[in-house]
Design a protein around this nucleic acid. Structure first.
Lengths: 118, 118
DNA sequence: TCCGGGTAGTCTGTTTTACTATCTAGTGGT
DNA sequence: ACCACTAGATAGTAAAACAGACTACCCGGA
């Protein structure tokens, strides 16, 4: 798939993805970026992740605690709080609703093609 | 789901949705808006659709022809051309890849919850 | 001893893109 | 006059990319 298309699709979904990763277990920025890459989101720039983290912290969806690291500056460990869990639930609902409609559209097209090819 | 979340998620997906609708059969703006509402995309503002149409026309993904209408100003009927079909195929690939990764994340979370609740 | 490079980690501009909200504006039927 | 159609324009907001700066610790070599 094209890089640019993916970039645009990520808008509005990335935040939820990050919340989901933190929901799995608490994590710090660098680690979250790494997990994103593991999960196949290899195209995401580090700076973007930090921007998301700042945003979700400001909105009070996560709790933060500083943990010293052996190497490098202290880590900021994010964990999902009650509000974040509610927000994530909302995110899944929105995603479901969108995905359902898009899948329906796609199957409509496939049907019309099948008809046209008889 | 929240309106705002949906708005953000639509970014990057709406264009493909419009292309898909036009792929189903040629259509003009007002009609496309109506079809979107039928398909459950009731939250989309009319002006937005016209903006998308201008964009996909400028990118050469659709062919346009003016058709007089019995009522009101002439319609601009959009139909998907070869380039548009290729773009739409690309769109589905990107969507699949995103949807797959998001679903995987979700199932990971559900699994970890199931474990934690034993 | 001090300096450089590598690795781990966080953060901050600026730019690009897409959707919304709201409004203008035209036609034709009742 | 008003309503149902039909097309568009403008200004604003939000999110992500890109690029790079900044901090901190460790280790190896001159």
């Amino acid at each position: 798939m094209s890089k640019q298309q993916m970039t645009e699709m990520l808008k509005g979904t990335l935040e939820g993805v990050v919340l989901a990763i933190v929901a799995l277990r608490p994590a710090y920025g660098y680690e979250i970026t790494a997990r994103l890459r593991d999960q196949g989101f290899s195209d995401i720039v580090e700076g973007t992740v930090y921007a998301v983290l700042v945003r979700i912290e400001q909105r009070g969806l996560v709790d933060v605690r500083k943990v010293p690291s052996e190497k490098g500056p202290p880590r900021k460990v994010y964990s999902l709080n009650a509000r974040g869990r509610e927000h994530l639930a909302e995110y899944w609902r929105t995603w479901n609703s969108l995905a359902e409609r898009i899948e329906r559209l796609r199957s409509d097209i496939e049907q019309s093609h099948a008809q046209g090819e008889e």
